[in-house]
Structures are given as C-alpha cells and as structure tokens.
Nucleic acid binder design. Structure first.
Lengths: 206, 206
DNA sequence: ATCCCCCTACCGTCCGGTAGGTAGTTGAGA
DNA sequence: TCTCAACTACCTACCGGACGGTAGGGGGAT
C-alpha cells in the first residue's frame, strides 16, 4: 500500500471534511472575526454537531490558527508565483505584479487570506508562534522586493524602505474595508499603488 | 440658573462619571475591540457595578457608539486645528500637518480614536448611522485636502485622488499595528507619508 | 419630598469544552 | 470467505462560566 490518502468513515468515500471545516471557518472568520464566530456556527455551516469539530481540531484556537496559516500561505504562494512569472520584467513591473497578486488573494474566491487579516490585524490577543513565523516569512518577500526596487533606483533617495513596506502592506490590507469588485479593478488599483511607491518609471532593465 | 454643569450624587462634587466610563471603555475597546470588551470589565475599571452603567447608557451598543463618535470627533478636530494653524502654508505642508495630526490622535494619550478605528475597521456588524455620518464628514476633510493639493499640481497627473485617499487613510490607520513610540517619530513618519502622496515639492505658494 | 447615582440579585442565552456512546470502515487472522 | 478487534467520524447530552440586560431597593444631596 502506498497510502493513497487518509480514509474516512462517514463523509463520503473521500476524506475532505477537514478542508470543508476550514472552508466554512474561513468564510465565517472573514466576516465575523475571532470573537464573533462561534464553533456552533462553523459546525452548522459544515452540517455536523459542534462536538464533532473536536475530532479534527483540539480547540477553537487551533482551528483558527490553521485557517490563518493557510491564509498567509495562500497569499505568499500567489505572490511568489506572480513574481516567478514576472522574473524577466523590471523591478517596477514586478512590484505591480506582487501588489496585484496580494489584492487578488485578498478579494478573490478564497476567504482564507482575508480571514487571516481580519483575525490578526489590529490583533486583540497574543499571536501564535506559527502564525508569527509564516507572517514574517511573507513580510520578507516584500522586504526583498523593495530592496530590489531600491537598487534599481526605483525609489526616491530619501525614503525609508521599511516605512514604505509598512505603508504599502497597511494600505493593501486596508482595502478589505472599501474594495468592492464592481467598483474597483484590481489591475488599475495595482497600477495606482505601484505608482505611489515607485513614481518614476524605472523599467528599462530587462 | 445658568446650568453650570450636570450635578452628581456620588462621584465627587463634579459629575464626571460619564466621562470616566467613556475613558475606561475607550481604553478597553482600544485593546480588545467590541466583542472582547465586556460591560463587566468596563464597570470594574471604573469602580462601579455593571448594572450602574445602564444609568448612563441604554445599552452596550450605545456606549460604544459614544466612544467611537468621540474618537472620530477628536481626530477630526485635531486635523482641523492643524490645518487652521497651517493656513498660510503651501498645500504640501498642509498635507503633512494633517497627517501628523491624524497620527498624533491615533497614538497620543487618548484612546478614543484608536478605539474607533479598532471597532469599526474591518467591521463585523452594521455601522450605526451617527458613526457613518461623522466618519463621512471626516473623510471629506481629506477629500478637500487632496483636491487642494491636486489643483496646486502636487499630485502626479495620472493618479486617482480617491485611490490616493483610500491608500493614505488605510496606511495611516494600519499604523496601529506597528507604531511604537520608542521606534518611530511621528514627524518623521509624516514626512515619509507626505512624500509618497506628493513626491515633488510643490510648496512655493505662500 | 424628590431626584440622582449606585447597589444586590437575578434572568435567559450563548459560549468553549468534555464525557461517553454508536454506526460505518478497515485490515489482519482463522 | 467469514470474523472480529481497532479505528474513524460523528452523535446526544451535559458542564461551568461569562455574556448583555432587568427588577427593585437604598442612601446621600438638593
């Protein structure tokens, strides 16, 4: 046996019930945050009883932690993929691609990333170590991107790259509050945001 | 009788107990948000029983609404005062002064403004009408400021003023997450912020 | 005498979490 | 091939505690 997958007893021949729980939890966390979202709500959305959740997760905090880590992972992978696809472009276009990928992860179909932002931005409680780690790794992507842009001369000389990063991520995540798909276009927004960070078009480099 | 002030029975010769409740509520809301902050906590911080809060406010929502409205009012007044003091300056310096006033209101001694941001940013529940109104009025200050800057030629021609405003306010409020008084200087941050929005120094106008 | 401010005591509801049981599925051994 | 223990996934029922909110009383100031 090559252990094809984890077998399940009840939920169909496929064992996707953990993912289903995470999906519903992400949706509810996205719109309600940590304290407004109860395990009963999540269980009801999944179609099981609250106690059954404890078969998959040891506590509410562990469930939420799983959702949040997935959310950070998703946006991280999306941005990494966008940067890989734009490997040949200049740093300014790479910045714009990364911004677009971040916005798409926030406002696309998945609820994970926005749930992650909602739960741990303006954070109330202590942040779990695993979340802190994955967030820091994601921040490093932006640090690297801005350093690259700076070396290429795409940032005005006086600006602090760290302040720039904090501004940019804050503004990007703040879009949760005002972004509506019918009123804004992610590509156009990305162009606006990138133009703010790197005003002069430095993209001659191949 | 010229009605010098509201009289109180118990809380000293001055009737400041409503303000005290609001102060403590603001402090707790700032660090815990709406759902994590309980009326018992607030009452305990004030030094009274939970039921006594209902002598001053009809419900938790009404109490929070009062805190939030004060928070928006404070930052509004602070920014208006800063703009009045910089009435003779150019639009670029006026922008920087407004940014500094906003940051000072967020991170200064009062907890009201950060409580307001915390409660109604990434908002879960419906926003009361009074809060929506005062927030819209405050947003108009920035709309006017950016329009003024645009007319003076301080904004790059392609940029959308509305996107600029959303970016700026989002980045400003996001500073709640990372600002530490010992690590950042509000004046320096304001210069960074203003330089992003209006990169070229347009301030020749008197 | 009245009013203001705060009190004690209590309400129903919901919370996260636990105890213990019951089907369906699996794989090994006779 | 049949049996059976082990395991998985889920269930009902319950726990103590915290929540927002209410009822009604007391005591000091005017």
């Amino acid at each position: 046996m090559t252990a094809p997958a984890i077998r399940t007893g009840r939920a169909g021949p496929e064992g996707g019930s953990r993912r289903l729980i995470l999906d519903m939890a992400a949706r509810l966390l996205r719109s309600g945050g940590y304290h407004q979202t109860s395990l009963r709500e999540i269980a009801e959305a999944v179609g099981i009883r609250k106690a059954s959740l404890y078969h998959h997760f040891a506590s509410k905090e562990e469930l939420v932690e799983a959702v949040v880590n997935d959310g950070v992972r998703f946006v991280d992978e999306a941005v990494a993929a966008a940067l890989a696809a734009a490997a040949q472009a200049g740093p300014r276009q790479r910045l714009e691609a990364a911004i677009a990928a971040h916005l798409a992860a926030l406002h696309g179909h998945g609820d994970y990333t926005s749930a992650a932002i909602k739960v741990f931005t303006f954070g109330s409680g202590p942040v779990p170590e695993s979340v802190r780690l994955s967030r820091r790794l994601y921040e490093d992507v932006w640090r690297g991107l801005l350093a690259e842009l700076r070396e290429a001369g795409g940032i005005a000389p006086g600006r602090s790259p760290e302040a720039l990063r904090l501004f940019l991520l804050g503004a990007l995540n703040g879009s949760i509050d005002w972004y509506r798909p019918e009123r804004f276009d992610i590509a156009a927004l990305s162009r606006e945001f990138a133009a703010l960070v790197a005003p002069n078009g430095v993209d001659a480099a191949k």
